[in-house]
Amino acid sequence: MEHTERILAIMDARNITAYKISKDTGISESLFSKWREKPSSRVSSANLVRIAVYLDCSVDYLLGRTDTPNVNKSLKES
């Protein structure tokens, strides 16, 4: 799964529109539209961090390096 597919899946599950996340993060709304048309692994590190903070999940989760969305949650379970 591409990074953008994971981001879009979270947005869909939480009913977050491209307009809303764009407005709140300063990331171009058109970027999310491009990702819907053609998922990509090309996400700048700055945007990846902004999105992770906004979605309250780890960058590792967005990158597919873990299936646990929140770092703090995984630490509590240990």
Results as ranks from 00 to 15, higher is better:
29 E>D: 10
48 L>R: 01
67 D>H: 05
12 D>N: 04
76 K>Q: 10
42 R>N: 12
3 H>V: 08
21 I>G: 13
36 R>G: 11
26 G>V: 15
70 N>A: 13
66 T>Q: 08
24 D>A: 11
5 E>K: 06
65 R>N: 13
13 A>G: 08
49 V>D: 11
63 L>R: 01
2 E>H: 06
24 D>L: 07
26 G>L: 08
60 D>L: 06
2 E>T: 01
42 R>P: 00
35 W>N: 05
35 W>G: 00
72 N>W: 14
52 A>G: 04
19 Y>C: 03
75 L>H: 15
12 D>S: 11
45 S>T: 06
35 W>P: 00
25 T>H: 00
70 N>P: 13
6 R>E: 10
28 S>F: 08
9 A>G: 04
17 T>F: 11
13 A>D: 10
7 I>H: 00
28 S>R: 14
39 P>N: 13
25 T>S: 08
52 A>N: 10
20 K>R: 15
45 S>M: 14
4 T>N: 03
19 Y>W: 09
22 S>W: 07
72 N>F: 04
11 M>P: 00
42 R>L: 15
11 M>N: 04
16 I>F: 07
22 S>A: 10
30 S>Q: 11
61 Y>C: 12
49 V>W: 06
64 G>L: 10
42 R>Y: 05
64 G>D: 04
51 I>Y: 05
74 S>W: 06
1 M>G: 08
66 T>S: 04
36 R>M: 05
54 Y>K: 12
66 T>G: 11
33 S>M: 05
70 N>I: 14
23 K>H: 09
69 P>V: 12
60 D>R: 15
13 A>E: 14
46 A>V: 12
77 E>R: 10
44 S>Y: 02
20 K>C: 07
36 R>H: 11
11 M>G: 01
10 I>C: 00
76 K>A: 07
66 T>I: 12
50 R>G: 00
33 S>D: 05
74 S>P: 15
72 N>K: 15
59 V>T: 02
20 K>W: 05
18 A>G: 08
32 F>C: 10
31 L>F: 01
50 R>Y: 02
52 A>S: 03
1 M>E: 14
6 R>I: 03
18 A>Y: 02
55 L>E: 12
1 M>C: 05
42 R>T: 02
15 N>D: 06
6 R>A: 06
51 I>L: 07
45 S>I: 13
55 L>M: 11
76 K>L: 12
38 K>N: 02
70 N>S: 14
8 L>Y: 07
48 L>V: 03
19 Y>M: 09
18 A>S: 09
44 S>W: 05
31 L>D: 01
11 M>L: 05
68 T>V: 06
77 E>P: 00
62 L>I: 07
8 L>W: 03
53 V>T: 11
50 R>F: 15
9 A>H: 14
71 V>K: 15
53 V>P: 15
58 S>Y: 04
36 R>W: 05
40 S>C: 03
54 Y>S: 12
25 T>A: 14
8 L>A: 05
13 A>M: 12
13 A>N: 00
18 A>F: 07
14 R>I: 09
13 A>F: 10
69 P>E: 03
22 S>M: 07
3 H>G: 01
31 L>C: 02
28 S>A: 10
77 E>Y: 14
43 V>K: 03
37 E>G: 04
56 D>C: 15
25 T>K: 02
9 A>W: 13
19 Y>N: 09
4 T>V: 02
59 V>W: 04
13 A>P: 00
25 T>I: 10
72 N>P: 13
64 G>F: 02
76 K>T: 10
34 K>Y: 09
58 S>T: 13
75 L>Q: 12
25 T>N: 09
64 G>Y: 11
